[in-house]
């Protein structure tokens, strides 16, 4: 593992869906221990881009360097292996499992096994889940409560705990506040800084520009599959971001190709 240079570098990422060019040569750099905001209108390519980074989509062109190595992120499992975790907008939780069941989904602690049949160690998973949430200052919902019965904020906590379990280097938060009440959203927005304090880099996708201005170090604006701005958060403001998102005079003509 190298600890110098940027954590993530995307170079000319292209993704097509049939005839639609969803990503048209997007490049960006994420420094270690920083929060990058990724913004843009609906259909600008934000979700597609993070799915490329999280291994859900394969790019049709371009290169990815992570932690100093050129990588091909062939699937979500591989992304996790190299230290990239994603918290999806819909949280991708299994509503009929409890918090521990979700946190350990795909990496259950097992007692013993014969071939593919492995017996779960439910107690060990409950214990580890409680410790993990405790580290984040969160409380584990009582054992056995289905996450489908939890509040939006609690569900968010479960999803983020799951992402942190493997001690990743990069956590992608996709619209973390879109489904939350205002007070819960505020709590969740403290999360990127908490993560950075633990040495994790964060990519935050959000529609709420003020939130992005509040918690990020840099902001990348996508429009129609292209990067139209790459800004230092301290040196920009709401007005400038809106201009980039909707398209300025300069880019309007070039937008449709």
């Amino acid at each position: 593992m190298s600890n110098q240079g940027p954590l993530l570098e995307l170079d000319g990422i292209v993704k097509r869906f049939g005839g639609v060019l969803a990503l048209d040569g997007v490049s960006l750099t994420l420094e270690r221990g920083t929060v990058l905001g990724l913004i843009g209108d609906n259909g600008a390519g934000k979700s597609t881009l993070i799915k490329v980074v999280s291994g859900a989509y394969q790019p049709d062109g371009g290169r990815i360097r992570f932690d100093g190595q050129q990588v091909r992120i062939v699937n979500p499992r591989y992304a996790k292996t190299i230290g990239i975790e994603t918290v999806y907008q819909d949280l991708a939780l299994v509503d009929t499992l409890d918090a521990a069941g979700n946190i350990f989904l795909g990496r259950e602690i097992v007692r013993y096994g014969a071939g593919p049949v492995k017996v779960l160690n439910k107690h060990a998973m409950q214990r580890s889940a409680r410790e993990l949430l405790g580290r984040l200052g969160l409380e584990l919902p009582s054992s056995g409560t289905e996450v489908g019965m939890l509040s939006g904020g609690q569900r968010q906590s479960v999803a983020i705990s799951r992402a942190l379990y493997t001690r990743p280097q990069l956590v992608i938060l996709d619209e973390p506040t879109s489904a939350l009440a205002v007070t819960e959203a505020r709590k969740v927005l403290e999360m990127p800084r908490t993560l950075v304090a633990q040495g994790v880099a964060v990519i935050l996708i959000s529609h709420t520009l003020q939130d992005v201005l509040d918690v990020t170090d840099r902001i990348v604006v996508l429009r129609k599959g292209r990067k139209v701005a790459d800004l230092d958060t301290g040196a920009t403001d709401l007005e400038e971001l809106v201009t980039y998102i909707v398209g300025s005079e300069r880019t309007r003509g070039a937008g449709y190709a």
């Binding site: 699937n75 994603t86 509503d95 499992l97 069941g101 017996v119």
Partner: peptide
């Protein structure tokens, strides 16, 4: 026993509830 105490049993319930979440967990 298989459905309620094993990993594969749990995956059967989980995949029936939210197929995408289970696939994203690398299963």
């Amino acid at each position: 026993l298989f459905l309620h105490t094993t990993q594969l049993g749990r995956y059967i319930y989980a995949a029936g509830t939210n197929r995408r979440a289970v696939a994203l967990a690398g299963i």
